[in-house]
Simulated assay, not measured.
Amino acid sequence: MKVLLTILALATASASGAALPGAAEKAINVKDISGRITNGYPAYEGKAPYTVGLGFSGGWWCGGSIIGHTWVLTAEHCTGSDVTVYFGATWRTNAQFTHWVSRNDIINHHNADIALIRIPHVDFWQMVNKVELPSYNDRYNDYNEWWAVACGWGGTYDGSPLPDWLQCVDLQIIHNSECQQTYGSGTVTDNILCVRTPDGKSTCGGDSGGPLVTHDGNKLVGVTNFGTVSCTSGAPAGFQRVTYHLDWIRDHTGIAYY
């Protein structure tokens, strides 16, 4: 039997309990969701150089992925204010460098929980680098049963504070029909990708907007969106499916792989 809950965004406050503008609750009418890495492992320096931390006004924290010299991909529900982008930070607030970005340089999708942040040009090296998007040849690949890694600075257990050290977790992608058994077809639509969360391994609060990258080929296939309010419940975790948004990303950034 499904239990009807309320969907919450996966962003979290690093210092205050203030609501994230426009993101504290999303009227999706299905489940309670939140976003952090639980039961993962500490990342070694340089493991995920495409991962950035996003510190928003009001103390809210999210993740994002560098997809080009001047672009970061993240979740729309994170983007309620100006943001400081932390580049190359394994220790959360000890970045190689930071850039402050006005909310005017944030492009929200509006019809899906995904957003782009236009950043000042960054050079790539071992600690700061881009992750490639799937190619157009893979736009209909559902990645079912593929293994992927999610990274972020979300809490490491239910109700925990944000960790200082970047955490990662390896998760297996599942068919949307399996995910719909928990969240329903109204939430798990074609633009959603889900993963299994066995043994309490999952994303949770503070990981919103962060990357899900395939082990095979190192392609960015997901943007962290939601999970159950108890991140260790074993329920699937949900992401925006990047292949669904390739045209939108290309139209705004010029980035595409053929």
Rank of each mutant, 00 (worst) to 15 (best):
V3N: 08
S14I: 10
A23S: 15
A23Q: 13
A24L: 13
A27E: 14
D32G: 14
I33S: 14
R36I: 11
I37Q: 03
I37R: 03
Y41T: 14
E45K: 11
E45A: 11
P49A: 05
Y50P: 06
G53Y: 04
G53C: 08
G59E: 04
W60I: 07
G64M: 07
S65Q: 05
S65H: 02
C78Y: 01
T84A: 10
Y86F: 14
A89F: 00
F97W: 05
F97P: 01
W100F: 12
V101C: 04
R103I: 05
D105V: 00
D105L: 08
N108C: 11
I114E: 01
A115H: 03
R118M: 06
P120M: 07
H121E: 15
F124D: 14
F124C: 11
Q126R: 14
K130E: 13
V131C: 13
Y136T: 14
Y143C: 08
W147R: 14
D158K: 14
Q167T: 09
V169L: 06
T182Q: 07
V188I: 15
S202Q: 01
G205M: 03
G209K: 00
G209A: 01
G209C: 01
L212V: 04
G234S: 11
D251H: 08
H252P: 11
T253D: 12
I255C: 12
Y257K: 14
